[in-house]
Amino acid sequence: MKGLLLKDFYMAAKYCKAVLLLVIVFLAASFLGEENIFFAVYPSMIAGIIPMTILSYEERDKWIQYSAALPYTKAQVVSSKYLLGLLFWAAAFLVSMAATAFRMIGNNSFSMDTFLVMGTALLILGLIGPTFLLPFVFKFGAEKGRIAFYVMIGFVCAVITLLTGLGFQAILPFSKPVLIGICGIGILLYILSWQLSILFFKKREL
């Protein structure tokens, strides 16, 4: 699997330069600007979808078929994308959290509760993309997966608008056990999505 990951890094370095630049700009904005959760969360969200970008290039170049001629199992091909997603997300997560902590300390407004809420939001919103999209991409291919991506974005926006309208923030209990529970569910869904993608990809004909 080392070979697959190395190839993914080469491809990410080539095709995701713009994404990396965006991450830096948004991190700088979140560090320098006022408290705006969007600037802090966005880098994790886009870092999480790097595997989908690479998969669409791989489909175009017929790597998906070629990888089946190499000594890799389909489970390894899928796992390399989930691991890659985790690595990029983790890097964005750590940098975002560090930037948030520095900004809060710099503003004399550091609060552990807010910091943990931010961490939970970064985890959930960073993993939500690959969790829901990768099984679609591995089952139907990158083209149809992209349609699923737009549907998902629309759905998430609709849900957030609806919850905001209902005064969701006021009733949300931000206690530590709840936050840990939310993180646990996020990680569990990521693992379930991983297994589902392996199942779909094993059945897919290349």
């Binding site: 070979g3 190395l6 190839k7 080469y10 491809m11 790597w63 078929q65 070629y66």
Partner: peptide, 20 residues
């Protein structure tokens, strides 16, 4: 269609296959 990603060089392909 060969199947090698278009952005890779022969040198990079060699490194990938070394781990494959």
């Amino acid at each position: 269609d060969v199947g090698i990603p278009e952005c890779l060089t022969a040198k990079q392909v060699g490194k990938i296959m070394q781990y494959t």
